[in-house]
Design a protein around this nucleic acid. Structure first.
Lengths: 211, 211, 211, 211
DNA sequence: AATGAATGAGCTTTCATTCAT
DNA sequence: CATGAATGAAAGCTCATTCAT
């Protein structure tokens, strides 16, 4: 990670390797187990080599979060974009999430563990530590596709959905999806896809405008 | 802290004080922050005084979990018991949970953090570490009132609910309720009761038998 | 152990009980295991009760040593006193030692452990910590009967023994006898009496004046 | 302190330094005084630097024991090997032991203290903790040269020695030699060589076949 | 005569981090 | 690029000792 020159190919490869190791260790033993030493051991390099590439343990975690979040986001965005009704978008959002978790069990589990356990040196949670850009402005552009609140707002606005609390609904959905990761963490054979289908049904019934 | 004899008044008070301190610290800074030293500091006694009353850090955590879980359980059980339809029980279960979280924000947040972050020395999660008595036998007696799966199974069996996956539904509900704790953790003013009402509506719509 | 009044009967009994407990614990698990707490537990009284009678852990150890040493000494003195030749005294000394160890395995083992492991707060060994009365003056009176050096000196002086180094011989004999305790410690069925007989033969052959 | 690769020069030097420090501290103040902190202080490095090289306190002790035992064993083996009668071997064994103690007072004293005081976490003594390969099979090869029992057995078998208990004789000899270390511990100027000569005489007289 | 409560010093061990090479 | 060496802070825990009751 020397100075500000472009990262070399080797450099990128090492960083990816370190991030991958961190994710595996966290998924297997929890955030607390992921010491720099264990990450280094897992790859077979020296502890100081890891910190040469990252300077700080938090750096590694942040990179890991960024990597996984980006992947998940792009999968979800492209799935949601193909739909044009709120109901369709909601189902697509849920299915894309479930599919991502099913296909990326380890990173997903690690992610949950990090978001749950990570505290900066000031005791802040991960989401609190990451500098929030602005206040409560609703996200625009691609980000809107990522945010289930936007979908709920749309559905309510267009009359496709019953009147409902956008925030509470979003929270319930996010919680239900995170719950899938929890189950996947304790049971590797948990059928996340089927769980997703149940959620699709559930949220369809729970959101559609009453006749 | 003598073994057999029943605890004195002072003893009980100190233990409660220590447990309370642990809960506050965990709620504020996460399970990882709850060192024996910090707990002692928080009360203003020596580290060894804490360990005089508890022998082990795990002891403190276990006592904390037991205390909170017992309180929550009794609140929930008595609420559910007053209802006799599956729909009624489900609503009562949700409302009792929400009410408990709203009334016990700090213990609830701490509890979630513990259950989420705790790993035994073998790397087992909290639920895995606690010795499960039997296999997957459904709980009986009061415990059944605590387990939403029983409610869903009842409703499906009686035809009150639509056909649905009991397990997935239970997981979704538990996740949605735990999500409330998460939100309460990041925003002390989060309206857990209102969220609970939204959940009641949501699960009513999502479970009721289709005409 | 209040002030300077005569110790009451109860007082004496408690002290003896504590000393006995200490000896048992040390014999079983080594000096390091003999914490004040364990001693108290062993009797079923409070830790502070133990220190009420002894003020200091060292006090307990010293009392234990004194008790056992006194018993051993009186057994040995009376055995040696019945003999009038150096050879006879030597044999009696050895046999009395062996008999004492055989009959008092636990105290003897504990004693060895203490003498071996004990260090005062200044790091001094037990024999160094105990205030030595004077320099190298040979002991007189009953004490002479306790000191094998006196026997060897007698034998050499009278021509009953070959010329030999009194000090070295005494050291070898003491070491050989302490060795019996070691063996008894690791094997409760070690035949200390038979070992003693071998020593009697050995020292007879090794000391008698050559013709 | 990387695992597989062979130790660098610096690494070896530090390890030796740490082992030496441990031996000195133990010899001076007993096994109980040898905390990692004291060892570090003695060298003038940080506590954690010591544990960087050794991972565990037991590691240090084991390394110390191995080092000293190996040195002592090779000195004794080569001395005994040059002799061909039982009497000769016995004398050589005693002299080699005495010489080693005289030349390595501090390590020898430390060794005795360790062997004497060490208890594993299960409360086992040093000799009990070390996994004994088989039962009571007499050692073969070089190890036989280290075991005085073999010498006594030889001498009795060939008629060179009087009939005697091999085990008791071995125990007496080992005790007498360990006794030299004890004396050396309390008096740095103790003449271990002279003591050894007295033992040679003593055991010669005590073992030789009667006419 | 005895006890419960508390304390402080010390213990082993883990860990992120720094730095010269 | 990468490493070995070292460090300091913090962790959980044990123990002899003190003291008011």
């Amino acid at each position: 990670m020397r100075s500000n020159t472009e990262p070399t190919f080797t450099e990128r490869a090492r960083r990816d390797q370190i991030v991958a190791a961190a994710l595996e260790i966290i998924a297997a033993g929890g955030y607390g187990q992921a010491s720099v030493a264990k990450i280094a051991d897992h790859i077979g390099i020296a502890k100081s080599a890891v910190l040469y590439h990252f300077t700080t343990k938090s750096d590694i975690i942040e990179a890991a979060v960024a990597t996984v979040m980006t992947q998940a986001a792009s999968a979800i965005v492209s799935a949601v974009r193909t739909e044009h009704t709120a109901t369709g978008k909601l189902a697509a959002y849920i299915r894309a999430n479930a599919a991502f978790i099913a296909a990326n069990r380890i990173p997903a589990v690690a992610m949950l563990d990090i978001v749950t356990s990570y505290r900066s040196s000031d005791g802040l949670r991960f989401d609190q530590a990451a500098a929030k850009p602005a206040g409560d402005d609703p996200p625009t552009g691609d980000l809107a596709l990522l945010d289930p609140a936007a979908i709920f707002a749309d559905g309510v606005g267009s009359g496709e959905f019953r009147p409902l609390s956008v925030t509470f609904m979003k929270n319930a959905l996010r919680a239900a999806l995170d719950g899938a990761v929890w189950e996947a963490a304790r049971d590797p054979d948990y059928d996340v896809i089927a769980y997703g289908e149940e959620l699709v049904t559930m949220f369809e019934l729970a959101t559609r405008a009453q006749r």
